[in-house]
Amino acid sequence: MMDILRAPFSEWYPFLFILLAGALPTQIWRWLGAVFAKSLDEESEFLNWVKAIATALVAGLIAKLVVFPSGSLIDVPLWARLSALLLGYGVFFLTRPKIIYGILVGEVVLVSAAFFYL
């Protein structure tokens, strides 16, 4: 991270990091979207490619949160975490477009395993 800033502004560093690495790179897309709302084609090939990259990135993040978790999830075995995700996903495909049942099934599987291992 920004070690130069870390020492003199140690108290404010986390907020600076949040604003510069989190908020600004996020909001810029919304501002650009609001400004270009008229002149850019939402169906353009370039935007399709960009959307695909963004979707794969978020999916990768989701998988990482399940495969390499933090905190109490670490003590739930990998097979149980993956089963919870896959069973929830399966139920979602049966009940789509509603997402609530898939989430409930995934959580029930995870909590059952957690009760056993935690």
């Binding site: 979707t55 978020v58 999916a59 993040l61 989701i62 998988a63 949160l65 399940v66 978790p69 933090s70 905190g71 109490s72 999830l73 003590d75 739930v76 975490r81 919870a84 995700l85 929830g88 996903y89 979602f92 789509r96 477009p97 997402i99 898939g102 989430i103 995934g106 959580e107 995870l110 909590v111 957690a114 009760f115 935690l118």
Partner: peptide
């Protein structure tokens, strides 16, 4: 710990399902 595991798990499963639903 069981409750916090359940809550931490909520983020990935909510995102996976809502992202697939929005696709």
């Amino acid at each position: 710990p069981v409750a916090s595991a359940a809550l931490v798990f909520l983020t990935p499963i909510y995102f996976l399902l809502s992202m697939t639903a929005a696709a």
